[in-house]
Nucleic acid binder design. Structure first.
Length: 557
RNA sequence: AACCCCGUGGUGUAAUGGUAGCACAAGUGGUUUUGGUCCACUUAGUCUAGGUUCGAAUCCUGGCGGGGUUGCCA
């Protein structure tokens, strides 16, 4: 009975709250997440998952996971497995409530029979092309099929023979008898069953007729006792049909379909068709390529489930067509990672630095905090030696005004190490900088000077003798335009930078840098992701990211 | 020129007839052993025209704009 007046309720929660209050369906809440196993789950699905599972949980209900597998030609067990894995990874649990629409093929067949017996469906011999002609257009009504008035007995007989496999694909369909003049084209005698002599990933060759989405979905919901059938906006126009089928066969209970807007992200393509094209065309290395907006792609890129869920929560539930800024998603990840990800020193684009007053062969073990945001994560030792690498981007021979890092004659702090001062710049014959000669101040061990003097910059470094070398791709964004989803020639907009392989050098506390991708977050840092990414893996912070940010700012001026 | 849905800062949202608020982004300043984090501040909004009302982002009507719908896909 608690009244949470201050908590704003989105329109779906308002409806559910009202239903529960009114004792509708005994106050039970049962939702479902119903993907078709024809591809991998992407960030757009994450929103639906958060809503479906989230609302069920909030109202003390359950959420089913149901594979909407009514089209055997497009589906595969590979996808079933990945979907389960990804939903679990996000942190949701369907318990015992895992189903397939194909579990209900027998019941659905019975419902179809009932539809025929009630005179509400007929077997139609029109070809696909003819059906299209008869359907009419958006502005003109359709014409009734010449087969529309077959007797119930004949329909029953024909439908039974369809099931037995007496007809080839496309020869006949079972159609609902509704209204060919309905302004909603989906109500103009829609198909209920079609013939498909195809092997189904679960039921094998048992069936050669398969129910259409509109018929199977609402009745599957009813069979499972779903109370609120939440889906995206494109199904809005299907809702009258959803209701019609349930009423027409007299199914109980009658779930309520409610639609919300789907997620769109800037710089990202989201449709399964296009993602499949990226995979099949080898533009990416599979569904879990870290550049993909799939959940497994985000996972490899180092995203946490918490960040994704938080993002979905912030977006809220509305019916407004929207294009969400991926910067918000990145913010959610930084926010999460910042609190818990261990940090490690890293250098990309190494520049050798010789500390002239540090003895050759000596190793100084320095103490480094694992996570400045979380002291409980402890510290580690970092070896300091005469020869180190810093990032090329952290040195400028002719530093402009607001550049705070190393330059000739300047002093900076090596993070967790010493202050160093640049005395000399060594170049090769072509004038490229190949080495820096510096001196360190032994008094500044740990990073602070007893005399109280300050430095403006703190830079990353690794011991040249101890650094672990690896390669990684620098992930920026797969696409280089605002919204490639809207572009016709979207494949040409792939960002070439996303393919660039870079060297990376990290502290010896890491055994190796596994080949993978490096995710770039300006001003926050990079972290490395790979096939077996875990949240315990470190963020390679600062260095290049900050440099790029600075460069970008300069470019603006 | 059909039907349905949706229009609040650049973006995503809150306010359900009573002070237009939050977050991201952008910008400025401060703290800082990550140019990160954190803190403070700034910029910026109810598509439009009428109507109802003491009072409209909210209700009504028209216009304008965006999206969806003509699979034997889901």
């Amino acid at each position: 009975m608690s009244e949470e007046k201050n908590e704003p309720l989105d329109f779906i929660r308002s409806i559910v709250t009202e239903d529960v209050k009114n004792g509708k369906r005994d106050g039970q809440v049962v939702t479902r997440f119903p993907p078709e196993p024809n591809g991998y789950l992407h960030i757009g699905h994450a929103k639906a998952i958060c809503i479906d599972f989230g609302i069920a949980k909030e109202f003390g209900g359950v959420c089913h996971l149901r594979m909407d597998d009514t089209n055997p030609t497009k589906e595969d067990v590979e996808y079933v497995d990945s979907i389960q894995e990804d939903v679990h990874w996000l942190g949701f649990d369907w318990g015992e409530n895992f189903f397939y629409a194909s579990y209900y093929y027998d019941k659905l067949y019975e419902f179809a029979l009932e539809l025929i017996r009630r005179g509400k469906a007929f077997v139609c011999d029109l070809t696909a092309e003819e059906v299209k002609e008869y359907r009419g257009t958006l502005t003109e009504p359709g014409k009734e099929s010449p087969y529309r008035n077959r007797s119930i007995e004949e329909n029953l007989d024909l439908f039974e023979r369809m099931r037995k496999g007496e007809f080839p694909d496309g020869a006949k369909t079972l159609r609902a008898k509704i209204d060919m003049a309905d302004p909603n084209i989906h109500m103009r005698d829609p198909a209920v069953y079609r013939i498909r002599h195809a092997h189904h990933h679960r039921t094998g060759d048992k069936w050669c007729i398969y129910p259409m989405y509109d018929f199977a979905h609402c009745l599957s919901d009813s069979i499972e006792g779903i109370t609120h059938s939440l889906c995206t906006l494109e199904f809005e126009i299907h809702r009258p049909l959803y209701d019609w089928f349930i009423d027409a066969v007299g199914a109980e209970p009658h779930p309520q379909q409610i639609e919300f807007s789907r997620l769109n992200l800037t710089y990202t393509v989201m449709s399964k068709r296009r993602l499949l094209e990226l995979v099949n065309g080898n533009y990416v290395n599979g569904w879990d390529d870290p550049r993909m907006p799939t959940l497994c792609g985000f996972r490899r890129r180092g995203y946490t489930p918490e960040a994704i869920k938080k993002f979905c929560e912030i977006l809220g539930i509305t019916k407004t067509n929207s294009l969400s800024d991926i910067a918000l998603l990145e913010h959610c990840l930084r926010d999460d990672l910042n609190k818990r990800a261990p940090r490690v020193l890293a250098v990309m684009n190494p520049l050798k630095v010789v500390i002239e007053n540090f003895p050759e062969g000596d190793v100084d073990e320095l103490e480094a905090i694992n996570n400045p945001e979380d002291p409980s994560q402890g510290s580690r030792k970092v070896p300091f030696t005469r020869n180190i690498y810093i990032d090329r981007n952290d040195f400028m021979e002719d530093p402009p005004k607001k550049f705070f890092r190393l330059g000739p004659g300047r002093e900076v702090r090596l993070r967790y190490g010493y202050f160093i001062k640049c005395n000399d710049v060594i170049k090769d014959a072509d004038g490229n900088i190949v080495e820096l000669r510096c001196t360190y101040d032994p008094e500044t061990r740990g990073g602070s000077a007893p005399d109280g003097r300050k430095v403006k910059g703190t830079i990353h470094w690794v011991s040249a003798d101890h650094a672990v070398e690896g390669e990684a791709r620098l992930y920026d964004r797969l696409f280089s335009v605002e919204n490639p989803g809207a572009e016709k020639n979207w494949l040409e907009l792939l960002n070439p930078d996303s393919l660039e392989v870079k060297k990376i050098y990290v502290e010896p506390c890491l055994a190796e840098v596994e080949p993978g991708y490096i995710c770039q977050f300006e001003r926050q840092g990079y972290f490395c992701a790979d096939k077996d990414y875990t949240q315990e893996k470190p963020v390679f912070n600062r260095s290049v990211a900050l440099r790029d940010s600075w460069a970008k700012a300069q470019g603006k001026k």
